[in-house]
């Protein structure tokens, strides 16, 4: 034990206070931008594209990659590496393929700030926009995963009971978002990307003194894992979700489509000029590589060094406080907390913006005849800010019931969203006969089937469930598209495309 725990606690608390002060300062500078709905959501054009790229990567990497997936690696061994490989490789390739098209379409529609709005414009359908904004509420479970991650850190590092840890976690998250807004989010997420990268690199560097073996450090790690259980070093794990070639391919399919998550696509919409996409995509790839592929190895090392943890999700916090001097451990713990906050703020912003922008602003004029556009805009921002607290309390309530695996719960939430929106977004680019009826049916089919498959154990593997639900969603959309696309529709699409 290298760490004196009361000194560690106070070091972490003081670093956090300085860090929050810095965010408050940035937030004050950005306040002028967040008075309108578009400014609240994207802070468009005010931030360097290199920083937006780092911010994209920091938002991508949440409690799932910093706590949850290392926890899976602790439990199941090297077959989990297929997941993090996809997080860098397949997701980056996906970003490179989709970024330009999504951005061009977004520009064509004028100022849009959210994915439901994008879909609403592409398919000329308010109903679709409202439907997808409701689907994004699945992100509440994603937020729950972040709360659980924070509570696990507080429990492992400071000894705060889990129940109080979740309350503290939600409180600091809400305060953090209240201090900033989107402008602060872009700047601070970029800074957090750097902090997270340093934390990730330190984890791997520390293997030289915790695992040993000099340059053969990974050979040493492999040997010691195999000594515990040979299944821990297999390519395809007998236990755990990575237990067949099909499942591993389905993981890659999931991670390829993951960049279509609304809170990530919003980042692309904040790029101002087309030539800015080049530095943005390159910086996103470089930062994503460092912060998504290294942390998981810490979970493997923790299995060798601390084989008797009560919760696999505690692998990384335990490894950090046992392997580093107090001051460095405190900085790394703050690095992990910032990894969680940088995703949570984007998730909250995505959910609340959708409620304000795509739900309230679309539906309110139906009930309040004669409301002026200015009034509507002001009320939408108010609703979005109120939704922030409601979503926080809702996620807190769900967090009290601790999940077995943080990672599996987070993956459930985003798979449910992706199963629904994958077909409408991708067919929306490539296919002239993609109609609004097809898109609405595809959203309902994909998400509902995913929930049915996983909740009733129709398909036990969560990755295969997502793959087959998406497949059904594509099939429904194509069949309905063929039946409902008529001459008038094709003309409309052509008119929009030119």
């Amino acid at each position: 034990m290298l760490v004196d725990s009361s000194f560690l606690q106070w070091t972490i608390i003081s670093i956090l206070i300085i860090y929050f002060g810095y965010i408050f300062w940035i937030g004050k500078r950005g306040k002028v931008h967040s008075q309108s709905m578009v400014g609240f959501a994207t802070a468009r054009g005010k931030v360097s594209p290199l920083l937006v790229g780092a911010s994209f990567a920091a938002t991508y990497s949440s409690a799932n990659l910093f706590i949850g997936v290392p926890g899976l690696a602790y439990e199941y061994g090297t077959s989990v590496l297929w997941y993090t490989l996809g997080c860098f490789g397949v997701s980056w390739v996906g970003l490179l393929i989709f970024a330009k098209m999504f951005w061009r379409y977004g520009k064509k529609f004028g100022k849009i700030s959210t994915v439901p709005e994008w879909l609403g414009r592409r398919y000329n359908s308010k109903a679709l926009q409202v439907l997808v904004s409701l689907l994004i509420l699945f992100n509440v479970y994603y937020i729950v995963g972040q709360n659980v991650g924070l509570a696990t850190i507080f429990e492992t590092v400071i000894g705060i009971p889990y129940f109080w840890g979740t309350i503290i976690g939600v409180t600091i998250t809400i305060v953090y978002i209240g201090l900033g807004g989107a402008f602060a989010q872009m700047i601070t997420d970029g800074v957090q990307g750097v902090l997270m990268a340093i934390t990730s690199i330190l984890i791997v560097v520390s293997f030289f003194w915790t695992i040993g073996g000099g340059f053969n450090v990974f050979g040493e790690l492999t040997d010691r894992l195999a000594a515990i259980d040979p299944d821990l070093i297999s390519f395809i794990g007998e236990n755990g979700p990575y237990n067949s070639v099909m499942a591993i391919l389905a993981v890659q399919f999931l991670l390829f489509s993951f960049i279509l998550m609304p809170h990530l696509l919003n980042k692309i919409l904040s790029i101002e000029k087309e030539e800015d996409l080049a530095p943005f995509t390159l910086s996103a790839g470089a930062v994503l590589f460092v912060i998504s592929t290294l942390m998981v190895l810490g979970g493997l090392a923790a299995r060798v060094l601390y084989p008797n943890l009560s919760s696999p999700d505690a692998a990384i916090p335990t490894y950090v406080i046992e392997s580093f001097p107090t001051i460095i451990a405190a900085f790394m713990i703050v690095g992990i907390i910032s990894a969680i906050l940088s995703s949570t703020d984007a998730l909250y912003l995505g959910v609340t913006t959708s409620i304000g922008n795509d739900f309230f602003r679309v539906l309110a004029p139906l009930f309040k005849k004669g409301i002026s556009p200015e009034q509507l805009e002001q009320q939408a921002v108010k609703v979005a800010k109120g939704a922030l607290v409601v979503v926080g309390l809702w996620s807190l309530y769900i967090s009290f019931d601790r999940p077995d695996s943080l990672s599996i719960m987070i993956q459930f939430s985003f798979s449910a969203i992706l199963s629904g929106i994958l077909a409408p977004i991708s067919l929306g680019y490539f296919w002239k006969k993609a109609t609004n009826y097809g898109a609405i049916a595809a959203v309902i089919t994909g998400s509902a089937l995913y929930v049915v498959f996983t909740q009733f154990n129709v398909i036990e593997n969560i990755y295969l469930a997502m793959f087959f639900a998406s497949l059904a969603s594509f099939a429904v959309m194509i069949v309905i598209g063929l039946f409902t696309a008529n001459e008038k529709h094709s003309e409309l699409v052509l008119k929009k495309a030119n």
Binding site: L85, I97, K100, L221, T222, E275, A278
Partner: peptide
């Protein structure tokens, strides 16, 4: 498996950069 992991990461770096150079890099 860990060595394969690093090799595959390198492979994705190269293929990602190839796509980037083709579609994004200023000519």
């Amino acid at each position: 498996m860990i060595l394969t992991y690093f090799l595959l990461i390198a492979f994705f770096w190269l293929s990602g950069l190839a796509i980037w150079a083709k579609f994004y890099k200023k000519s």
